[in-house]
Design a protein around this nucleic acid. Structure first.
Lengths: 222, 222
DNA sequence: GTCTATAATGAGATAGAC
DNA sequence: GTCTATCTCATTATAGAC
C-alpha cells in the first residue's frame, strides 16, 4: 500500500500532509484556499485536544493565525468546520481501508490489508481520528446523518470481507456483526490511547492488529 | 459471576442500581445522601449525552430535580461531580473485571471471565462507561492523575493474565502490550457504539467478545 | 479578506432570605 | 438544605472601517 511502513518517513512533498493528519490520498482540492486549510488544521487540533464544546472560535482562529471574526469569511459557523472535518476524515479513513483491502486477492489477505491500513490511519492521524470518532457526537442531527451514511459504508465493506471469507470456508466467524464491529473497535480506539502513549510506531501497531484480526476469524485449535 | 446472563433481569432490590448504571457491587456508601445520588445519576446522563463541556450545571440540577444553586451544597464544582463519577466508574469496572477473572483457575478461563465481565459492564452501563472512558479527558491534570492510576491498575491486571498464560504455554501472544490494549479497546469501545445500536444484549456481546479475546491469544492453525 | 469593536446570550458560581 | 436573584465572565456571531 502507498503508506506502508517504508513510507513512514515521508518525502518532503507529502510530509506536511502526514504531519497535519490530512491523509495524502485526500488532499484538499486546489480550490480550497490557504486560509481554509489553516482553519481546518487548527480546528482539528483544538477539537482533538479540548473537544468541540470545549473549543472556542477564538482558539481556532488564533491557532490559524487570524482574528476571531476572520473565520466566518471561510466557514459560516463552528459547526460547519466540524462537519467538514468529519466528512473529510471519514472519506480518508475509508479510502485507506479500501486501498489496503484491494491489495489482496483472497479474503485473508484482503482482511489483513484492510485492518493494517485502517489501524495505520488511526495510529498515524490520531488527532483527526479523535474528531472523526468522538466529536462526531457534537454534530447536529441533520449533519450527523451525513456522516452516519459514511460509517455504514465502512462497516458494510468490512462485513463484506468477513462474509466472503466465511462463505469460502477461509474464516470461522462466530457472529458476523459483532466480529465486524469488534475489528473496527480495535482500530477506532487507537485514536483514544495513541496520543497518551507515544511508545509504539504506527506500522508496528498496524502489523500486530492485522494479525489479531486474522486470529479473530480463525478457529482456535482444540 | 454475580451478574452473569442469568442475573440480567435483576431482582427489584438491585434493579434500580442496574438501571442507573451504578454497579451493584459498588453501592454508594450509606453516608451518601439521596440528593448526592440523584445528582450523580443526573450528571452521568448529561455528560454521556452532551459531554462535560456541553453540560451546564443548570441541566444537571434540573435533571436531579433541584435548583441550579442546590448543586453547590453537595459538590463544590461541576469538576468535582465529574471526578466522583470517574473514580466510581473505574472502581466498578475494575471490580467487575477482577471478579470475572477470579472465577477461573487456568489462564484461559481467567481471561474469558475477565473479558466477559468487562465487556458486560460496558454494554450494560454505557452511560457511565462513556463518562469514564471519554469525559475523563475533561478532568483537570491533578484529577486526571488520580484516575490514570486506576487505569494503569486495570491494564496491569489484564497484562498479568496474558503474561501468565504465555509463560505457561497456554497462550500464543505476539505482543504483550498491544494485545492487552487491544482486548481492552474491544470492550471500552462498547460505550461508544452500544447506545447507537440497541440490537445486541449485553450477555451475547460479552460472550462473543470473550471468545474473540480467546482467539486473540491463540495461534491460528497453519 | 482582514481587522477592531460590540451585540446578545448563556455559562459557573455566589448571596442571602427562608 | 433549598430557593430566587444576581454577579462576573466567556461565548458565538455580526457590524462596519480599511
Amino acid at each position: 500500500m502507498s503508506d506502508s511502513p517504508k513510507d513512514e518517513s515521508a518525502g518532503s512533498a507529502t510530509a506536511e500532509y502526514l504531519r497535519s493528519g490530512l491523509h495524502p490520498l485526500h488532499p484538499l482540492p486546489p480550490t480550497e484556499s490557504d486560509a481554509r486549510r489553516r482553519l481546518l488544521v487548527a480546528a482539528r487540533d483544538c477539537f482533538a485536544e479540548d473537544g468541540y464544546q470545549g473549543t472556542s472560535t477564538r482558539m481556532i482562529a488564533g491557532r490559524a493565525g487570524m482574528s476571531p471574526a476572520a473565520m466566518y469569511i471561510h466557514y459560516p459557523s463552528k459547526q460547519a468546520v466540524l462537519l467538514k472535518l468529519c466528512l473529510l476524515g471519514h472519506a480518508a479513513a475509508f479510502e485507506a481501508l479500501r486501498h489496503g483491502a484491494e491489495l489482496g486477492n483472497d479474503p485473508r489477505s484482503r482482511l489483513k490489508g484492510a485492518v493494517y491500513a485502517f489501524a495505520f490511519w488511526h495510529a498515524e492521524s490520531p488527532m483527526l481520528g479523535r474528531v472523526v470518532q468522538w466529536e462526531v457526537a457534537s454534530l447536529e442531527p441533520v449533519n450527523f446523518e451525513l456522516v452516519a451514511t459514511q460509517r455504514r459504508t465502512i462497516e458494510a465493506y468490512v462485513r463484506g470481507i468477513l462474509d466472503q471469507g466465511a462463505q469460502h470456508g477461509a474464516f470461522s466467524v462466530m457472529d458476523l456483526h459483532l466480529t465486524t464491529v469488534g475489528i473496527l473497535s480495535l482500530c477506532i480506539d487507537l485514536a483514544r490511547w495513541v496520543p497518551l502513549r507515544p511508545a509504539s510506531s504506527p506500522s508496528s501497531i498496524a502489523a500486530t492488529y492485522a494479525a489479531l484480526a486474522e486470529r479473530m476469524v480463525s478457529a482456535s485449535p482444540p
